[in-house]
Design a protein around this nucleic acid. Structure first.
Lengths: 342, 342
DNA sequence: CAGCATCCCGTAAACGTTTACGACGATAAG
DNA sequence: CTTATCGTCGTAAACGTTTACGGGATGCTG
């Protein structure tokens, strides 16, 4: 593979000048710059990032960490692809590449991330699925590595984050169900310590308080964020004495499982049990009955994430003067047939 | 961030010795090696990959390219996560990291890949969704960059690839439908030049030939690999004179759309139209009626891909003496209710 | 005791960039 | 004519590693 040295002697120019020409520095004549660019194209020269990183202490790439192994199927993955798309759009304008870092199964995620930064694979990070107490945000903050979290932590500190407004949305969902006459509402939460579960629950409790409905802990059911979890939730919900009339599910996959369990019991969602699920997915409107849920505009979310990340990177902060962001991301109600009037 | 030099003077050892100790070279005493390891742990030293890459000409990472923007929702993405998981398992044993390279929307994929290798982001590549004529395999072959393709190309040459056995599976599906009395079978193919569409069609034609059923081009319908595409396929299928009695769909998302279109026409899949879809996804068994489809063990596929890739990398080839691989990946029938007897 | 092999370890070059610094010629100002 | 300014370019150091090479100490053999 050809380096800058070979390119320089091919053109009979010093390598310093070649470098300056390629990097659009001012102190090189327009004529030689053209020669250099043509020569580079001709020889197929592309800068070796190792050398560049070593000198500049910076790689032009940011990492996006997804949770792959941990919770398979937990998020139907149009989510990530949509967010990617937006983030990549913004980062691409700055010639930054976006690489995806899978969550290694047998390594501490925080250490893995530190390693990827120290190895100069990426300069900055987008992390998602933050847990209640998340070792990643602690380590990244302490190490002063630029990052943004999709999701808060319990001790939401001063690092930049954007979080889906699960609290607000839980409130609106409860309002809607109560307005339709429901008072016993079962709530499906994830059975791990992912933070949005707690946020969601908080929203439910505050809404119930507003409507002066006593909080019944037996209506809170924690299951896997999967179809199987939804099925199990159905199992547990059906044996609750004083049967609930509505269900609020934090993942749309749970809805599929719940639908199935209800069908087995000869019950029909939307008639025998009102169902509201988060988040809208490609499935939602092909379920029967169609699922009432909340939509988040994925691409815009990715764009905002990338912008907030850039704002927290010293080299780009001046372009995004709003500074590091703490933002609640709104979600929009999508009416389906699954939450009937009592 | 602390480098090897600081670590060396902290220990009063030369940096050469420190490097040798960390890399498990033989010519360093066991005692000093221990001291070095302890010191590294104490100071939190982790090798800078830029320096290492520059010296060795190698980064310990391989890239996995997915198609993100091009065909949104084309593959429901449990597919990629499953394959990842397997690939990462194998690569991790060799201390290789796996990074995902999204398919940039506004850049030629082949050039993008070349850039990622030249920039020393990755050493080798796994590419997927190969097209009929794929500029990526041409460029990567020519540049002697180690890679493996998930999917053949039209001019399937001597580069390593693993391909889902769409031809065999098309044969089995046709056999099954014919055995159940169907003779007019509509086939849903993707409307781009992704190679598996052609392979699939080839399988269909050979099966029809075996059963001495004339090939009717009007039964081949090319649509987007999405739910919307399936709906459109339904539109077109319903107006075919001499109505087909069965449908073979290359993507399971098409099945959802087709189901919907049939419902609107008052028809029921599995009774009025037999449906077989590829590939099994989390959805398949929650459709009603459940979808007959074919299963591929994703994790094993990822494992095989990684092994074949390693076999084609000079530094690892000796560990996988089977050499570069051309392999057809088997798929297993999952019986559902959607392909009725005529 | 000379000679030799062995075991460790230090020295320094090399990888491909970027960039501070200085040099050179040409032009403008005094 | 001298001096300052400016535009352009070459030189060389630096980034953090790895590794070929050589050298000193030690033990062994003859």
């Amino acid at each position: 593979m050809i380096g800058i040295k070979r390119l320089a002697e091919h053109l009979n120019i010093s390598i310093g000048t070649v470098s300056r020409a390629l990097n659009n520095r001012p102190d090189v004549s327009e004529e030689t710059r053209q020669r250099v660019l043509e020569g580079a194209a001709e020889l197929g020269y592309v800068a070796n990032q190792s050398g560049r990183s070593l000198r500049q202490g910076t790689t032009r790439a940011v990492g996006f960490m997804i949770e792959s192994g941990a919770d398979p199927g937990g998020n139907s993955d149009d989510f990530f692809l949509g967010v990617f798309d937006g983030a990549q759009y913004v980062l691409g304008r700055h010639h930054l590449d976006l690489v995806v870092l899978p969550c290694s199964t047998d390594e501490d995620p925080a250490l893995y991330l530190r390693r990827m930064v120290a190895r100069r694979i990426v300069d900055a990070l987008i992390i998602s699925a933050t847990h209640r107490e998340d070792s990643r945000v602690e380590l990244l903050s302490k190490a002063h590595i630029p990052f943004i979290a999709l999701g808060r932590t319990a001790t939401a500190s001063d690092h930049p984050w954007i979080d889906l407004d699960f609290e607000g949305v839980a409130n609106r969902a409860i309002d809607r169900l109560v307005a339709r006459g429901h008072r016993r509402i079962v709530v499906g939460l994830p059975n791990n310590d992912i933070n949005l579960g707690f946020v969601f629950l908080e929203g439910v409790r505050s809404a119930l308080r507003r409507h002066e409905i006593p909080f019944d802990p037996s209506l809170i059911i924690r299951v896997a964020s999967s179809e199987a979890g939804g099925y199990q939730l159905g199992n547990e919900a059906l044996v609750i004495k004083e049967r609930p009339t509505a269900a609020l599910l934090i993942y749309e996959l749970m809805a599929i499982g719940l639908y199935r369990r209800l069908a087995e019991a000869g019950l029909q969602p939307g008639r025998d049990l009102a169902v509201i699920g988060f988040r809208e997915s490609p499935l939602s409107k092909f379920l029967s009955p169609t699922l009432t849920c909340f939509r988040v505009s994925l691409r815009d979310l990715g764009i905002s994430l990338a912008q907030a990340l850039l704002a927290s990177m010293p080299a780009y902060a001046h372009l995004y003067p709003d500074g590091a962001v703490h933002k609640m991301w709104p979600m929009e109600l999508v009416e389906g047939e699954s939450d009937a009037i009592l």
